[in-house]
């Protein structure tokens, strides 16, 4: 109760109320919409799960088991939730290549969003887990970029670098770059902790925190980020700066020195 009353005075409270109101309006509309459609929805839901099951049997079952119980080749998917499926399949990490390196990497996604949703629905039906976040959760409205930066430096920068350029982990594993990653996938990754990434559930990194982090990342690491000083040089700090200073800085100066010290061309002997 204390928590709630404290939050009521939060500057973002009005926004939350507004969003709630919008959600309620949507819900009311759905409730009052023609009944036939609702029934269709219901059957559509089970149809979706069936479709997902089929897709699962083709693309996933060989590693994760026919019922998602997991095998020696892949973990159990019971309870991982739709968010995990949406992230893993949506970023192309799943289905994984048969021979994989230290970790499964991002690649071209081979499923349509509708198919991913069907797979997600099927996996969710095996056991409840985090749902796919909505745009309201990961969108930029109401985000505090500066707070997001602080949270990013506390929770994320140790693996993903100051602005999410990625970094090394043990034995060839790595934290990937976060440049231009879909905000939805960022949110899902924090929520579900894919592969070796720890999860940051809402209980320890609140929904608002996640929204702030996503907004910060968009500000500092996307294709329209400003680098006032010029070339970003990979954004990985002094190593690339040092290489640049040696190759282009000292290199240019030595080229100039060669010109300064060279003898001037002589007139051709007649």
């Amino acid at each position: 109760m204390k928590k709630l009353s404290a939050r009521r005075r939060h500057p973002l409270a009005a926004l939350v109320v507004l969003l709630l109101a919008l959600a309620c309006t949507g819900g009311l509309y759905a409730a009052f919409a023609p009944a036939s459609k609702a029934q269709a929805d219901d059957s559509a839901q089970s149809l979706t799960i069936d479709e997902g099951k089929k897709l699962y049997a083709v693309g996933c079952a060989s590693c994760h088991g026919t019922g998602g119980q997991g095998t020696s080749d892949g973990p159990s998917l019971v309870g991982v939730g739709a968010a995990a499926v949406d992230f893993q399949v949506g970023t192309g990490r799943m289905p994984a290549a048969t021979s994989q390196g230290p970790q499964v990497v991002k690649k071209k996604n081979i499923y349509t969003q509708a198919e991913i949703d069907q797979l997600a629905a099927y996996i969710s039906s095996l056991g409840s887990g985090p749902a796919v976040p909505t745009k309201a959760e990961y969108g930029p409205e109401g985000a505090d970029i500066a707070k997001g930066g602080e949270l990013f430096r506390t929770n994320c920068a140790q693996c993903h670098n100051f602005t999410g350029k990625g970094g090394a982990l043990t034995k060839g594993k790595f934290a990937p770059t976060l440049e231009d990653v879909d905000p939805k996938h960022l949110y899902e990754a924090m929520q579900t902790g894919p592969q070796n990434m720890p999860s940051f559930p809402d209980t320890t990194l609140s929904e608002q925190n996640k929204k702030d982090i996503i907004a910060y990342l968009h500000a500092v690491n996307s294709s329209d980020t400003d680098n006032p000083g010029g070339l970003e040089l990979g954004g990985v700090g002094p190593v690339s700066e040092g290489l640049f200073a040696w190759i282009f800085g000292l290199g240019a100066l030595i080229a100039v020195a060669v010109w300064v010290a060279a003898r001037t061309a002589k007139a051709k002997k007649s």
């Binding site: 928590k3 949270l151 506390t154 929770n155 902790g193 720890p198 999860s199 940051f200 559930p201 209980t203 320890t204 990194l205 609140s206 925190n209």
Partner: peptide, 15 residues
């Protein structure tokens, strides 16, 4: 992150 005291239930396995 939240400046709130933690309960055991807040901390999930793998987090």
């Amino acid at each position: 992150n939240t400046n709130e005291p933690l309960r055991p239930s807040d901390v999930a396995v793998g987090s």
